[in-house]
Computed example of a mutant assay.
Amino acid sequence: MSDPAGTLNIQLERTSRGLACRIASTRPVTAADRFAGRAPAATAALLPLLYSICAKAQAFACVASLEGASGRLPAPAVVARRQRMVSIETIREHLWRILLDWPRLLGETPDRATMAKILSLVKELFRLSDSDGDLFRPGASSAALDRRGDARVLADLDDLLARQVFGAPPNRWLDEVRDGGSFDRWLGRVDTCAARLLRGLLDADEATLGQADVAGLPELRDADLIALIDAPEGADFLARPTWDGVARETSPFTRRAGCGLIRDLIDRHGRGLLSRLAAQLLEVALLLAEVRRERADEMPTPFLPPAPMMAGTGIGRADAARGLLVHLARVEREQVTKYRILAPTEWNFHPQGILAHSLAALPDAADDVLRRQAELLIMATDPCVAFDLTLSEPRA
């Protein structure tokens, strides 16, 4: 089977009215149709292998859509354990950016050694959370968690992040860094790569770069999602989704914009680069605090899929690292007849979406400066696929 990821082609053009941004995608948004004709269990097993970026989030949305289409209601403990694994995966994805991509944007060497240790720890957390490897199977039951081993691995992860990212244990960082003032003090006393990058944005007067007035995606009802995805023009919606006729944003920034620290940074620096990168950093610490809770009844109330809106049709949602991920499944006689995926990339990298507006808002500059600032904004929006960035002069 072909690679389902595709690429993004991002072009910045200088015009007499400023910068213009064009985004084109080769992502095959209806590629999930390949699951038609398969049994639900086979679909749940195969899909995360093919959609390997954020595979746990893909598995979460997949199994929820299949269980909904089949009329199954999973136990709350099962949903909580699945959500825990998605949270661990999101931590890993954010740290990949923070430890590998953020140093490159500073002209430094990516911290591959620390990232390798994190990958090993995350793999172990996955194993401890799903020792039998069937947690994302439709109708799965929740296995017992090795709490002693889990606590040990989380302690090792805390130690790594205290040294290499936060300059303090993540829980203590959450307690101490609550607003713009404490954030500034943290930047002044810590010398991790994350702190250097964010401090450098302030020092270079780049904290406000890329401000754009694109509203966040509201809570969508299952019935509305089914109607949009399942319509005759559903493939067009999957490729360039809009809500109420306009592009929307779904991202760590929209998830955390209501937190005290991010609200304060928005008040100080707007909805630009610094606030967006800080939201990714904050989410790492917040999700670690959630994951650290040992019992399912201490986890946030898990989302339980409602009864199907129509017989044989299910919607699954996951708060993936880059935003809301939605799967739609139709099942008849224990066979998938239709499968569709709506990924956050299509919202955030829409031709009129948040990245396009953010890049068009950049001030014109020399090519090297403009490229660096554009790459910062692309990393802050965080594509899950490869991208090409080109700069061009006005057409003759």
Rank of each mutant, 00 (worst) to 15 (best):
A162P: 05
S182M: 02
R172E: 10
A55V: 04
I266D: 10
D236Y: 01
A162S: 09
A380R: 00
L50M: 05
A311M: 14
P138R: 12
L304Y: 08
A55Y: 12
E233P: 00
S275F: 04
T390S: 03
L121K: 09
R152I: 11
I341C: 11
D146K: 07
S142H: 08
R271M: 04
D101K: 01
G180E: 05
S52T: 05
L106N: 01
A329R: 02
A168V: 12
P383W: 12
I226R: 01
L287F: 12
P252S: 09
L359E: 09
G312D: 05
G71H: 07
D175V: 08
L73R: 04
A212L: 06
T254V: 05
R295E: 09
A32G: 06
G18W: 05
Q335G: 06
D230I: 10
F303C: 08
T7K: 10
R104Q: 08
V385S: 11
L217V: 03
M310S: 15
E290R: 01
A318Y: 04
T90V: 11
T242S: 14
L154F: 15
L261Y: 01
T192C: 09
E294K: 00
V122S: 15
G107M: 08
G270Q: 07
F126L: 08
L391C: 05
N9C: 01
S131Q: 00
D224Q: 13
L12T: 02
A235F: 00
A239I: 02
T301V: 11
